[in-house]
């Protein structure tokens, strides 16, 4: 009997609580945002995992919203996003790190994706060490200085060799081939995805220990940690260029990392659809510094992505007007 009573009383409490929530919620809400969409309609941009990509996407979003576009953001990884563009489910990727095989397949062969030209940012991948280590061992400026000194980078999992900390498996890389081609006594240790890699090297950085790792610019963490690059040989005997001759066969990639011009790519359907957003995105172009700043707002200062983008847009009207064709 008492059990049943308890159940019923419980229900009453829940019902009362619910009613309270409904009323309180209604009082608190009441911000129905009516979106004004003009002829532009909806534009779908793809944001990728790294902070630089978030910066591009949200700045473009802020600009497109100015002319009344509704902007959707998808978050699909680098390779599958090509199929998304082929299907017209994603309209634009604003930062593509030269996916040559995809260019061949989707742009040249299938014509389902079109090249949008550079976004103004130059990417660079390389081998980096903390600056305090560079001061301690000035010979690490170039790769020759590493020879014979590999054991400086010893770690528990590298045995008697030095540890080379590899990059995110999804990023462009050829460190194993480089280590082999240069005859360095490094063990390639993959710590996995970028957050894991960052966790590892920042931990060593904080302890002022030696570490050498795969890293790149533009990257917002470069504003936070002092890093120096180890010069790799540009070309050497047996070196083949990545995407000219060596394309396809990873075994032939032996050159140093290039400076990569980052491209915008668009869905063909979007490019031919006559959206007023297309010419704006086509003109979209900024510098490494711009991007790093916005990325730092977002990832370093933990500012909301939309607010970070609006902050930059407000401070850089001239650039934005150029994109808008004014």
């Amino acid at each position: 009997m008492s059990d049943r009573f308890r159940v019923r009383r419980g229900r009453a409490i829940v019902a009362a609580a619910l009613a309270l929530v409904v009323v309180a919620g209604l009082a608190a809400a009441g911000t129905a945002t009516a979106r004004t969409t003009k002829s532009c309609g909806t534009v779908t941009l793809n944001e990728q995992a790294w902070a630089g990509s978030t910066a591009n996407t949200y700045v473009a979003k802020a600009v497109l919203q100015k002319i009344g576009c509704k902007v959707n953001i998808t978050k699909i990884t680098e390779i599958p996003v090509y199929q998304a563009m082929a299907d017209g489910k994603t309209d634009a990727v604003l930062e593509d790190w030269q996916h040559v095989a995809q260019y061949k397949q989707y742009i040249t062969k299938q014509h389902t994706v079109v090249m949008g030209g550079p976004n103004g940012v130059t990417g660079h991948i390389g081998w980096y060490i903390p600056t305090y280590l560079m001061q301690q061992y000035p010979q690490f400026k170039t790769w020759q200085g590493l020879k014979g000194k590999e054991t400086v980078f010893k770690s528990p999992e590298s045995g008697s060799q030095g540890m080379f900390l590899g990059g995110d498996p999804s990023y462009v890389q050829k460190d194993k081939q480089l280590i082999q081609a240069l005859g360095l006594n490094f063990k390639f240790v993959s710590v996995g995805a970028e957050p894991a890699q960052v966790a590892r090297w920042t931990q060593l950085y904080k302890q002022k220990k030696p570490v050498i790792f795969y890293w790149y610019t533009p990257q917002y963490l470069n504003l936070q940690y002092k890093l120096s690059e180890v010069q790799l040989p540009k070309r050497f005997k047996g070196c083949l260029d990545d995407f000219a001759t060596g394309g396809g066969s990873v075994a032939k990639y032996k050159c140093a990392y290039d400076h990569i011009v980052l491209n915008k790519v668009f869905s063909s359907k979007f490019a031919k659809g006559g959206s007023p957003a297309f010419p704006i995105l086509k003109r979209f172009s900024w510098t490494n510094k711009d991007q790093e700043l916005v990325a730092k707002y977002i990832a370093g200062d933990h500012l909301n992505s939309d607010k970070a983008a609006q902050k930059w847009v407000a401070a850089n009207q001239a650039k934005v007007n150029k994109w808008l064709g004014k």
């Binding site: 995992a49 978030t54 957050p195 990325a295």
Partner: peptide
């Protein structure tokens, strides 16, 4: 999405 993109730029 929140988890994957957060991991790279905002672990919290």
């Amino acid at each position: 999405d929140v988890v994957t993109s957060g991991l790279y730029s905002n672990p919290a």
